[in-house]
Design a protein around this nucleic acid. Structure first.
Lengths: 193, 193
DNA sequence: ACAGAAGTTGACTCCATGGTCAAGAAGCTA
DNA sequence: TAGCTTCTTGACCATGGAGTCAACTTCTGT
């Protein structure tokens, strides 16, 4: 759609790259809502330049989201895809998604808010969701996961973790992980009690 | 400590009462962080009056917190206290706290932020926590709840729900409740698997 | 080395919110 | 009802972040 991009001036190219780097850095540690002034400062550039180059906050996010999260999620899908046991696949998928959320504040923002109109993101999320659906139904068919768990539940469980992490209730990674275990146990098939 | 309160003028008394009512109303539906202008509007009074009468946002909250949440929490403690079965007590306590959070956004704010220096609140929270500890250890002694669940976990599980509800991920009360079930099931004693 | 295009800047506007205070309004008492 | 005191008001200050733009700076091709 966009024409053959007439070449930009050298300093412009340099800046765009610098801003991308800075954004990755800043967003990774502070989430997608970090003030753009900070990105600007980190890139040694003025806020105006960011707007000039990327149009808006969202533009910048779109330009960076792939490297920021998409790769990680694809990595998870790939890794889980390599497993055989249905229950292991199910639990590993959730666990890895949840830990990604803990490790990268930005991942939540992506999963939570940036979605509505970032094309590549929507695509990615759909893909993940489709994958999750497969994992879930397999695990249920194998009798490893409770039957009343719906795909929406799964989706919700992930969003929920995002919110929790984002809120910054102090908890060490170990505690976080231990508590995820509680959750997972609650999702397993309940033999008649 | 405060002297015998020389009587206030009639309009002042009327306003204080009106503001309290309005605050209850507004905070109930919007949480404790709702702009005070809204409270003022609802009370048919100017923002300045609120500050004059209550000193600060926190002052207003303190003046209202009891009627807003304290009673509800005490109600829960009382109701659960009447139950006998340890597991039922445990689950009922959590369930009711969680539903309270769903039903009243303000409850979260109370549990989450207002705490640090509101005396009555601190007191109440301590009481609830002590109660929860009893419920937990009883349930664990009875072998109904997993042994590796700590009191901190319990506390955290409640805060967590608060955050989730506050974030306003759309979910009907039914879905919310159904998902709580997953959580509770994950907390039960796990017979050797 | 210069003209003109491309790029950058930072001060500016806007908006929302918390909180303050001098001036004016209203209640109370004699 | 006058006069004193208590109250209320709403305009005002401060903060902090989003986004804009006219003026200035830096490239680049000739």
């Amino acid at each position: 759609m966009t024409g053959p991009e007439r070449p930009r001036r050298a300093d412009a190219r340099r800046n765009v790259e610098g801003i991308r780097r800075a954004a990755l850095d800043v967003f990774r540690s502070g989430g997608l809502t970090t003030p753009l002034d900070e990105v600007a400062r980190a890139a040694g550039v003025s806020k105006g330049t960011i707007y000039h180059r990327f149009g808006s906050r969202r533009g910048l996010i779109d330009a960076v989201v792939d490297e920021l999260v998409a790769e990680r999620i694809q990595g998870i899908i790939a890794a889980v895809g390599r497993l055989d046991d249905p229950l292991a696949r199910f639990e590993e998928y959730l666990l890895r998604m949840w830990l990604l959320q803990y490790d990268e504040p930005a991942a939540n923002d992506v999963l939570l808010r940036a979605m509505p109109d970032s094309e590549p993101l929507v695509h990615l999320c759909e893909r993940a969701q489709r994958f999750a659906l497969g994992v879930l139904t397999d695990a249920q068919r194998a009798g490893a996961v409770r039957a009343d768990l719906t795909p929406e539940d799964l989706h919700h469980l992930i969003l929920e973790r995002g919110v929790v992490v984002q809120a910054g209730l102090r908890q060490s990674r170990e505690d976080y992980q231990r508590r995820l275990r509680f959750l997972l146990d609650g999702l397993r098939h309940v033999p008649a009690r």
